[in-house]
């Protein structure tokens, strides 16, 4: 048995702000997202290449359209592309339009990457009672929007969907700490505390990073901290980073839904 962990990236650029403000009015502190386009995302990819970590990138169509070379680079470097909705819509409030929006986003992302995504993470963190059923119909195999467990589980609260849930953890998400404007060292201490305990409790750590400069790790100094964290996870805990699709399929096939995944 080896232990697995997930390194995931929520590709947020101007999209969160553009959901409520016209894009041509995004300047200054409403335009932190542009940092992700200019340097944040390529630096994050450089760091993943240096460390040899395969990652799962959740791409909203809005950002994929604006960063074609970067999404192509993600693919070329062996990372997984999963869906992060269309344009930071709140699935919980879409009502009858939800299926149509999810389908359009699915088709567009498939056209951009050439392969249908099989994983989904809600762009705003919220879902409707219909979301999982729609994803199942579109061929998705896993969701990673919930924060209600430490290990993967089968999504079947309404009806068997065939989807595996890969829950994430707020303490293992950069935005949780940097939204509070913690220093890097404090954020690192929070990460380490959560990560060590999660692995100790046989959970499946699901790290989330953003390429932005404000809530994310696009800045060089913060990426250095993430590199130390990756090194610690591998060396101290003997953990191997896997793609979400690998862990979801393995979990479904073997029925082993804990953090210990057969190699």
């Amino acid at each position: 048995m080896i232990r697995a962990a997930l390194l995931t990236v929520n590709v947020h650029g101007l999209g969160p702000e553009a959901a409520t403000v016209p894009e041509e009015e995004l300047f200054g502190r409403l335009a932190h997202g542009r940092y992700a386009y200019r340097i944040g995302l390529s630096r994050l990819l450089d760091m993943l290449r240096r460390t040899g970590v395969p990652a799962t990138f959740f791409w909203p169509v809005f950002e994929a359209e604006r960063c074609r070379p970067l999404i192509e680079r993600c693919l070329a470097e062996g990372h997984e592309i999963a869906s992060h909705g269309n344009a930071f819509e709140d699935n919980a409030t879409l009502g009858a339009r939800e299926a149509e929006i999810l389908e359009a986003a699915h088709e567009r992302l498939t056209a951009i990457t050439g392969t249908p995504p099989i994983g989904f993470r809600s762009p705003t963190g919220t879902l409707s009672p219909a979301t999982i059923g729609i994803l199942a119909r579109l061929g998705y195999r896993y969701d990673s929007s919930f924060v209600d467990d430490d290990v993967p589980y089968l999504l079947q609260s309404n009806a068997p969907s065939g989807l595996v849930e890969l829950p994430w953890c707020e303490g293992l998400c950069d935005a949780t700490h940097f939204r509070r404007r913690l220093t890097q060292r404090r954020a690192e201490a929070f990460f380490i505390e959560e990560l060590d305990a999660m692995i100790g409790a046989a959970g499946l750590p699901c790290l989330i990073f953003h390429p932005r400069a404000d809530i994310g790790v696009g800045r060089t100094a913060r990426l250095a901290m993430i590199e130390r964290l990756i090194e610690r996870t591998r060396v101290r805990h003997g953990v191997i980073f896997r793609l979400c699709r690998e862990v979801a399929e393995r979990a479904r096939v073997t029925g082993k839904l804990g953090g210990a995944i057969p190699p």
Partner: peptide, 14 residues
């Protein structure tokens, strides 16, 4: 128009 040479309000590059 007022003759300024720089703005220091953006956060989108290093």
């Amino acid at each position: 128009r007022l003759g300024y040479r720089y703005d220091a309000s953006e956060k989108d590059d290093d």
